[in-house]
Amino acid sequence: MAENLDQSFEESSMSNEEKRKINREQRIQIIAFAFMIGITILAFLAVGSEQLPGVFTIPFILFLAFVQLILQLYYFMHLKDKDHGWPNSFMISGLVLAAPMVVSLILLIGIVKY
């Protein structure tokens, strides 16, 4: 087997069915990308227009960032696919740990100390 690892292939073993599936997936990825560009422009417009109050803008752009996080993780990094159980549990536990870390650091060095 080891000698096969560096062997290149004449063709792919994909069946026509698999090829159709992968091409469809690729189109969905491009749509997800267009959507990400759209919400990025929306976030910049919300701040750049200077028409909206900060109480609205900040939760709004944080929400857009969260939507983009989900799109990147689940589409571009394929967490939505099957056989991604362990990757899902690693990334989710990372995020679950990250949230209280950010909050406690803001409280400890931002509010308590000053």
Binding site: W86, S93, L105, L107, L108
Partner: peptide, 26 residues
Amino acid sequence: LGMFVFLAGEVTMFATFFGTYLGLRD
């Protein structure tokens, strides 16, 4: 699999830097 373990660790590392920035930015 190892890549995802590494990335989960990176998530928490960046969280500390974000928290510090948000605490100190004023």
